[in-house]
Design a protein around this nucleic acid. Sequence first.
RNA 1: GCCGGAGUGGUGGAACUGGUAGACGCGCCGGACUCAAAAUCCGGUAGGGGAGACCCUGUGCGGGUUCGAUUCCCGCCUCCGGCACCA
Length: 665
Amino acid sequence: MLANEQVIDGRCERCGSEVGKRNLSQWFFRITDYADRLLDDMATLESWPERVLTMQRNWIGRSHGAEVVFRVDGADVEVPVFTTRPDTLFGATFFVLAPEHPLIDDLVRGTPQEAAVREYVRRTEGETEAERLAEDRPKSGVATGRTVVNPVNGESIPVWVSDYVLMGYGTGAIMAVPAHDERDHAFATTFGLQIRPVVVPADGDVDVSAAAYTAHGADDRMVNSGRFDGRPADEALPEIIAWLEETGRGKPTTAYRLRDWLVSRQRYWGAPIPVVECPTCGLVPVPESDLPVVLPDVRDYAPKGRSPLAAAEEWRRVPCPTCGGEALRETDTMDTFVDSSWYFIRYVDADRDDVPWVREHVDGWLPVDQYIGGVEHAILHLLYARFFTKVLHDAGLIGFTEPFANLFTQGMIYRDGAKMSKSKGNVVAPDDYVRRYGADTLRLFTLFMGPPDQDKSWTDGGIAGCHRFLERLWRLVADVAAVTDGPARPTIAEPGPLPEALEVLRKTHWAVAKVSDDIERRLMFNTAIAACMELLNTVERARPTLADDPTGRDVLRFATGTLVALVQPFAPHLAEEAWEHLGGTRLWTETWPVAEERFLVADTYECVVQVNGKVRDRVTLDRSLSRDDVLAAARDLPKVRAHLDGRTVVKEIVVPDKLVNLVVR
RNA sequence: GCCGGAGUGGUGGAACUGGUAGACGCGCCGGACUCAAAAUCCGGUAGGGGAGACCCUGUGCGGGUUCGAUUCCCGCCUCCGGCACCA
């Protein structure tokens, strides 16, 4: 019913009910075939957040090592194991099979241990996932009474069965090296098995009776390892792998933590898996001309351990696409993550009903330039979508191999530790705040709280401040509309005589540049909103003066109209109303304001003057001054002079239009 | 345990490319308006010293590079997130 990724602490990530085990034949996507490409292509995802890439990397969990074949004593059976530490092969003192290992039956049949082993296997099968993964769980296991031969030294070592070995990773069997693996060490200690060190640090022996020696010192040497004795461990490792390969007892291998993607769901809502089961032909895919398979109408949608579709008898019965005989449809439906893995491709051609999409259209629009989603999708949706894209590319259906060129992950909002999300019933109920302050205030505040990629804790405090800002903006608009007229945002050719007019013009153009950049490039809505607040403060301060002058009134209108336009993305309702109040019609059809270069740069700047790196004074200087003039002006400042008195200037640093630093001794 | 991310005032956060630390907001303090309160407006608000002009200290801790470090490098601490019996 669920994929590995959808089980959190042994519970369903959606509904929280306990996950149980049942044997079912189900459908998988072979995502493991793409493990290497999913990993390696991450190098091309330069702008993806590091944490997402890391999570995917961990999830795929590629590790290089070797497969080593052990032969069962007294039987013509070979059991391969996977190890990342072939250099510790000589230290293998026992061997462990996962309880689900298919070989167990044959190994114990008719032996005195058969009953005990079967009992143990039965017990572990009954355990829930949560029980089996519980932390600090004491090791359990049972001896089979059988032995296998260690290929490197011919030694016979006992075979045990234990649930600390997972059937789903590697080969479901391990060579146990208690001297150099913590888990094997714990097991050996529990059952009194031999612990033999084979890799030791250069400075002498290490006590492996208390704990495993798992470090990889650069000077580690081999001991108890036959002809490798005394060799540096890091040199011996590749030699042992080469030797295993030459003698046919092993080979280099790569193992992955990633499992195949279980897509079968025994639910109604989901795309039916388009397969027909025919008594004569077996499993037959539904021909393309009959796709898509559409869900039947059913009375009862509730899952009851088998798919609700199984009850739709008429829908199930179809002629076999191959032989035409009586056959039955597959009744599993697909995981809904399957749909979200390619919806963005379908969006490009959403109104077609003959084909899902036309390649030329899709290649023209995709990959998605900027994808935005929550971090919670880091390893589910985003990994699946990448996988689908590669599969569709390999099938020649699209021309690109990664779906999302740039990824931005927004943080989550928490209150009292619970996340604010659709699926968790919105702990911070927006409705209350919408009722109290309106949707504009809520939206503005949500964006003002901080950078959108960070998690946030909701606090009621600040929202009133955002509401106050919008009220002040509204009052400004009303005041300006009352004392001026003309277009909502007039064109300003010259600032006129008032210094306030120039200041307001500069601030307005500064805000346009800042807000545009914050929205488009930086995705920092909090600082964009702060810039709007600054502009409001400046305009409000200058308002009485500007209102008394004809050009000033134009500037006032211009600044106010611009401010309204800049606020529009964050508070659209109020902005539209305000725009109309200023005499405009539809703000959302206007073009975005553009900052004028001539108002962005002033003739003067405030030069910071440091002595030995410490700020001692500031002075307003003309931009046109030469380096020498700047230095002279700086040195002439009384406060600076006091710090230079009786000392020698050994270095003068001038950062143009910014600061001067005088280094004295 | 492994892997990521982050530590800045009372508080959310800002400082984008190594160049004025604390923008903007909240809170708090003082003032104006008011019979009073609310709302609104004005001023103040990193810490310490000083009557004051000013001075010193300060971006988790300890070092380093640099004329100059919240920003770069090395070593630690703490918190958050992901994975976790993965051989």
